[in-house]
């Protein structure tokens, strides 16, 4: 399955907060540690733990793209 070629539909995605991403393959993801708040970079096969405090709870970062909402 070729995922890179996939284009999510733009129309009809609903009026609020369509946060689709154009699935770029990243080797590293950055997370935020739930214990100490530091930024944690994890490689694909790394153990899920903060490298500062060994905290096991990692949060995903908020999207950097703008999200539009209706003030209703």
């Amino acid at each position: 399955m070729v995922r890179e070629g996939y284009q999510p539909p733009t129309a009809g995605a609903g009026p609020r907060g369509s946060t689709h991403t154009g699935h770029e393959v990243r080797t590293q993801m950055t997370y935020i540690c739930g214990d100490c708040g530091s930024r944690v970079s994890l490689a694909k096969d790394a153990a899920v733990a903060c490298n500062q405090c060994m905290g096991r709870v990692l949060y995903k970062e908020r999207t950097k793209r703008m999200v539009q909402f209706e003030a209703r």
Binding site: G17, R62, M66, Q68, F69, A71
Partner: peptide, 15 residues
């Protein structure tokens, strides 16, 4: 009428 949120890390949800 429209709010374009770049970042909101407060505890208040975007909507």
């Amino acid at each position: 009428e429209n709010v374009f949120i770049e970042i909101n890390t407060s505890v208040v949800q975007d909507e």
